[in-house]
Nucleic acid binder design. Structure first.
Lengths: 127, 127
DNA sequence: TAAACACTTGCACAAGTGTTCAAATGTACG
DNA sequence: CGTACATTTGAACACTTGTGCAAGTGTTTA
């Protein structure tokens, strides 16, 4: 049940079939109709998709830490950690508390731990 | 209970405090001790952290699709979709089945849907 | 066999990312 | 005040990434 464009020997940039199974395509379109939610979800996954940031989050899940201790724990420079903390802060994945010259970071929403756990369970099943 | 290096006016590249709270640092270190698991987890999140790939996965969760219909559904070029499918294939997030010149892609492990749901629930709570 | 076609792949490139360095900020303390 | 210090920030950089294009692969069909 293929649908062809009505043309003779013209060059067409993409696939010449319009749609193979319209019902399935519509079903798929429905699954991705909320563009905004998808962008936000992708942005969140992207933040978790960097080892340094993932380590920061895993470290902070256990306990509040100052930047210095955090960088010691994940074996990274203070500057690198601080840069990444800004991204996590902006996304409200972590929050902070100032105490003199120290800044203590912690997890904004403990749900993130569950998300990481689900991902890791998924990984362990497939090996 | 600060621990200072024993030095006089030397220039030190980073934070002069070795560790503020050793117990917490050790707790954090324990949380990230499995370097391999963290790298794999980050890699997985990274794959989900791109809108095109996330759409592909969301579309495929609903039903198996050929590359052509998939690209129609997510409104992307065949080439772009094919490139991204290769990454998802390599990570065993999707599988494929050939039927003549068509290639039908589907989700390798339905667990991925749960992961995305958890992420989206997290997002909806925070707004 | 040749043409049509679905899909893949290699290349090139612009845009984006993570890190480092150095300078800046803000706080504590002598 | 000035010094020490924890942290942040901006610029520069190497590196990565997603996409489009054009060519290539393998299958179907006339």
């Amino acid at each position: 049940m293929y649908v062809y464009f009505d043309m003779k020997k013209e060059v067409v940039p993409v696939c010449k079939i319009e749609i193979v199974d319209k019902a399935k395509v519509n079903l798929a379109k429905k699954a991705i109709k909320n563009e905004n939610l998808i962008m936000n979800t992708a942005a969140m996954f992207k933040l978790l998709g960097d080892p340094t940031r993932l380590k920061i989050i895993l470290a902070l899940i256990k306990s509040e830490l100052c930047v210095c201790d955090l960088s010691a724990a994940i074996d990274s420079t203070i500057s690198a950690v601080s840069h990444q903390l800004r991204l996590l802060r902006n996304a409200r994945l972590v929050k902070y508390r100032k105490e003199g010259k120290m800044v203590y970071y912690s997890i904004e929403d403990q749900h993130i731990g569950e998300l990481i756990s689900v991902a890791q369970e998924h990984l362990q099943e497939n090996d």
